[in-house]
Design a protein around this nucleic acid. Structure first.
Length: 505
RNA sequence: GCGAGUGUAGCUCAGGGGUAGAGCACGACCUUGCCAAGGUCGGGGUCGAGGGUUCAAAUCCCUUCACUCGCUCCA
């Protein structure tokens, strides 16, 4: 385990040192769980996006793209269930792992005492018969008085703590009154947390007329609410999908593990609309399809794992995660969910508008079912880095190399004059200008050639091209491969073909 | 949120009341010329912030901020 956490630490500092990822707001002491992508990080990130978009949209006839806005009508989040599910003070029982609303378990307790008092009164009524004076009994019975006092005190405290959002006292109240979990029977409670999952903000220039908006916690809803427009304008027939890449925001209580769990993150999502009843076969199809995608990027089966969900979210009837073996264990990288028709129907209910598809094959309307694939871009970025970062023992030390798939590497080629004199820099720049429109290239003339090779290894550049005195005579260069460190002599024209071949999907 | 830990140069760290240090990195020049290793010179820090004790605080005390690591959910 210590090894694994040092692995992550090494990757984090490598990211910082080589311009991949910086802690956000660092000169102001940083901001927890926010990170910035540096000059090379942004290239890698864009390459991952591009690779995903190409596989999911451009190379398919049955998926089209969308870029919906981050701000959306606030009612969308009521329809999706995000408002209700994440706005209450919650408490977990550590033994049963059950989660309750903290206010509700106190109210249940009050109800129980109220029931006790009622029972007491009924008992007395029976005993005294017609002579029973209810008010007098309530006033004189010690037990009833005690319980009434308890009820009033508890209610008062509950309301006070809720109003003040004083969850520490509320937890103490729960412990004091001795509420136990009905499942585990213990009072081993966690602290109370209020899950404001969504970040809210205001729209409108005048504060008191402003209306509340949320930053979207997932991109999916933007796809659902555009479902009909996309289907009609792109003239799509079911089954078809809508893909989107974009930022999402979740006010996680605990956001950690570098860029694995951030409050601001980017998703690459695709919602695939199918005929009801066919969702399971499409679910299986996308499971296989997405795994293949990960394999093509160099993730072998020993670092990938499917994890089927047993407890399903409110919208799903089947769900699986593709997990990647991060230094801190197998963790979710991508989710594949069969979301049923929950979202579309819910939007239909909230808007009174039909979100249905007319299927000319069966001559009938229906609300499609949805199979979702949703991958965290930042997680994918981290997975790619974890899969690429190597410290290779070589003679006289170790070589740090990022074994990035060439198609994802920030720079494909480093162009290096062997020495910084004898016109080699000029010749190198000439070659740089020739190659730069085909490949993203890096030019570097400082330090010894060996040192520059190693720097490019650490940066993940798959090919180095070295310009020497012979180049001036016959336009041949040394092509040096990052992974094998092999070198070949090659003409500049051949070079373009060779490298192009390595970059085809 | 709770518990523990850490804040000194770009990085890794030393210094524990008396003029702010090392290695690496960085910049310039020279040298070498296909796998990080030569030389010379140089830039860079109110020691996380605020307060207190003291003639004197990076150092001792208090407060605070930030980050890291554990404990649950999610992409």
């Amino acid at each position: 385990m210590s090894n694994n956490s040092t692995d992550l630490k090494k990757i984090i500092s490598h990211c910082k040192e080589y311009g991949y990822v910086f802690p956000s707001s660092e000169i102001y002491d940083g901001l927890s769980a926010c990170y910035d992508y540096g000059p090379f990080g942004v290239e890698l990130k864009n390459n991952i996006k591009d690779y995903w978009w190409r596989s999911m949209v451009r190379l398919r006839l049955d998926v089209v793209g969308l870029d919906s806005s981050i701000f959306m009508h606030p009612d969308i989040w009521k329809a999706s269930g995000h408002v209700d599910a994440f706005n209450d003070p919650l408490i977990d029982n550590k033994d049963s792992k059950k989660r309750y609303r903290a206010d509700q378990i106190v109210e249940n307790y009050i109800d129980k005492i109220v029931a006790k008092v009622d029972k007491e009164i009924k008992k007395a009524e029976k005993r005294f018969g017609d002579n029973f004076n209810k008010n007098q009994f309530i006033k004189t019975s010690d037990r009833v008085q005690q319980n009434l006092k308890k009820i009033n005190e508890t209610k008062e405290l509950l309301n006070k703590y809720l109003a003040d959002e004083d969850f520490r006292s509320l937890k103490k109240l729960i412990e004091d009154i001795g509420v136990v979990c009905p499942v585990s029977g213990t009072s081993n409670w966690t602290d109370i947390r209020k899950f404001n999952l969504m970040f809210s903000t205001k729209i409108g220039s005048v504060a008191d007329q402003a209306s509340q908006l949320y930053l979207r916690p997932e991109t999916a809803q933007g796809i659902f609410v555009n479902f009909l427009s996309v289907q009609k304008t792109a003239r799509m027939k079911i089954p078809f999908g809508i893909a989107q890449i974009g930022k999402s925001f979740r006010n996680e209580i605990i956001a950690r593990q570098f860029i694995f769990r951030m409050r601001e993150f980017e998703q690459m999502e695709m919602q695939f609309f199918v005929k009801p009843g066919q969702e399971m076969s499409w679910f299986d199809y996308w499971k296989a399809e997405r795994k293949k995608w990960h394999n093509t990027i160099g993730f072998n089966d020993d670092v990938l794992k499917f994890h089927d969900h047993e407890n399903l979210a409110h919208y799903a009837n089947a769900a699986t995660d593709i997990e990647f073996k991060f230094p801190f264990g197998f963790k979710e990288l991508e989710g594949i969910h069969s979301r049923t028709d929950f979202d579309l129907r819910s939007h239909e209910r909230h808007t009174n508008k039909k979100l249905q598809y007319f299927d000319s094959e069966i001559n009938d309307h229906y609300t499609p079912y949805v199979v979702e694939t949703s991958i965290g871009l930042d997680r994918m970025f981290l997975a790619v880095l974890c899969n690429s970062y190597k410290e290779e023992p070589i003679k006289d030390g170790i070589r740090t190399v990022l074994n990035l798939p060439p198609i994802l590497a920030p720079f494909k080629i480093a162009i290096l004059p062997l020495v910084k004199k004898d016109n080699l820099p000029d010749k190198s720049k000439e070659i740089y200008n020739k190659l730069k429109s085909n490949f993203s290239c890096y030019y570097e003339e400082k330090d010894s050639i060996g040192k520059r090779y190693r720097r490019q290894d650490a940066l993940g550049t798959p090919f180095c091209v070295t310009i020497d005195h012979e180049t001036l005579d016959n336009d041949t260069v040394t092509l040096r491969y990052r992974d094998s460190m092999d070198q070949v002599r090659i003409s500049i024209d051949e070079l373009i073909i060779t490298i192009n071949n390595k970059l085809t999907i």
